[in-house]
Every structure is written in C-alpha cells, then in structure tokens.
Design a protein around this nucleic acid. Structure first.
Lengths: 141, 141
DNA sequence: CCGATGCTTTACGTTAACGTCAAGCACCTC
DNA sequence: GAGGTGCTTGACGTTAACGTAAAGCATCGG
C-alpha cells in the first residue's frame, strides 16, 4: 500500500516521471546538470530510494522558486556533509533570502496592482464621458 | 523649462535613450518589432513628439509587466481607432486581466513564503537539537 | 586629409529549463 | 525475422528582450 516506504525498491525513469508528473527528458536533464546520478543496468537508468528522494527535493526546490544551480549546491552540500551542519545553515540562509526576495516581489506586485487599478478607473471614466456603457467587473452574465 | 511640451521638438535616438534610461539598442529593437516607426533623415532615425509618447507607453507597459507583443497590439489599436473606443475597452480588459494574474501570483507567493517559513523553523529546531547556536534573523551586527 | 564621434545594419550570443526530433540498441512477440 | 516498445545519446529548437561585436557611411574639428 505504501510501496514508497520500501528502501529497496528500484524505479525506472518513466515510473518516476509518471509518479511526479514530469517528463523523462526533464529527469535526464537534471542528471546532465549533476543533480542526479542513478545506477545503470547496461545503459538503462535505475533509480533507488535515495535517488527518488533527491528528485523530490529537486522538484520541491523548483516549486519554491529556486534555480537548478542553487538546488545542486544544496544537494552537493547534503552529500559532502554527513552531520548536515553546514547544510542546515545553508538551507536556512537560502530560505531566508528567498523569503526576502518574495516579499520584495509582493511589494512590487501590490504597487503594480494599484497602478493598474488607477488605469482601470481612468478607462471607466473616459468611457462614461464618451457615452459608452461601462462594463462591470462581471464574472457573471 | 518644459521642453517636452513643445509638440514640434525632434529627438535623436540617444536623446530618448538617455532621457528614459534605456539603451539605443532597445529602442531599435522596439522598432524592429513594429512598436515604433520614426521618420528618417537620410539613414538616421528622427523621433517626434508622438513617437516619444509611444515610447513612454511602451516603457510603462513593460514596467507593468506586459509583453512587447501585447503592447504592440494596444498601440496598433490606438492608431486604427480614432475615437479610441475599442482601444479603451481593450485597455480596460487588459488591465483587468493583468490584475487577476498579479493577484494570483501574489497568492502563490504567500503560500510559498509560508512553506519557506516552515522550513526555516525546521532548520532552527534541528540546529538547536544539534547544539548549534541558532543565528537570529539579524539585520544588525 | 586624419581621426574621432555618431549613427547605421547585420548577425550571432545570452539565460533557463527543458521540447523535439533523429538514429540506434536491446528485448519481446508472433 | 519483422515489427513494436522502451530506453539510450546527441544535437538542435524554443521564448523574451535585448547585449555585443563587426563593418561601414557621414560629418565635424583641426
């Protein structure tokens, strides 16, 4: 029922791709960038439980807006740092920096929305003066 | 004092570039995409007051996050629509759509920030348990 | 007449994260 | 053994908005 908890399971590239909703091409691309390094059986890629966990970290990092280059740095640290001490500090620093970036972005967005609302009002007023019926915000009709 | 109010003034490409803080290359690029069409004196580009106004619209649109393709659509409408009726409606629609996009982006950002804050907390707790002194948020030091 | 600007066009380079063929094994089935 | 499926590598294509030369005309001061 929870086959993912089995640490001995092996996965093909299409299995992982389908499970996580990415293309096999993307997974190979991550490998080409040094973020993954699965075993081989002949020429075929064979992923184990740890590889799968790394892929999860990659996808989560992407979802949070980190670049692959940054994710790679973090994963490298993860490998090179058995106690995960420097890794923790780096992760914390990265998270905090990303939070600041996002908060800055949000401020920009708020300002832009304000400006766009002014444009919206100017449009509506100009249309009223031109005798055009002002279309409402209407999600209905 | 307000030389920009003189409708007969002409501008070189570098004048406009310096005034608005963009490169001449960018202005030529906008022209290559059909957003501008200045007169020529020989081979040199000569911009009049209306060209300058169009450039202002382009830059404002960019600042608000619209693509050059979209800005071009709007400018084309502006030209083909002497009463500016369809133009007003299109501008209004574009502004409203962009507002929705931005509000959606802001929701995403808020969710991402939440998730990052959780990671931050997990880092801090793991570091405490590992006996590492937790670095504060410190904008100081 | 020389060199320095200033402007022109043309065309390739850049960034990120893949998409999209193309060609080729290896294995299975019938 | 012909065909189909799954996997591989390699290489070029994509998007947006320019940046960065390269090469050349034109004008101006001296």
């Amino acid at each position: 029922m929870t086959p993912h908890r089995d640490p001995d399971r092996l996965f093909s590239i299409t299995e992982l791709a389908e499970e996580f909703g990415v293309t096999a091409r993307a997974i190979r691309f991550y490998e080409s960038k040094g973020l993954l390094e699965p075993q081989r059986a002949g020429a075929m890629r064979v992923y184990n439980y740890r590889d799968r966990a790394r892929l999860l970290i990659i996808l989560r990092g992407k979802r949070l807006g980190f670049s692959l280059a940054l994710i790679k740095q973090y994963l490298d640290l993860y490998d090179a740092d058995p106690g995960h001490r420097g890794q923790l500090a780096a992760l914390l620093a990265g998270a905090r920096q990303r939070i600041e970036e996002l908060e800055s972005q949000r401020r920009d967005i708020d300002l832009t929305i304000e400006e766009l609302r002014e444009i919206e009002e100017q449009c509506l007023e100009a249309m009223r003066r031109a005798g055009i019926d002002p279309p409402g915000t209407d999600p209905e009709t």
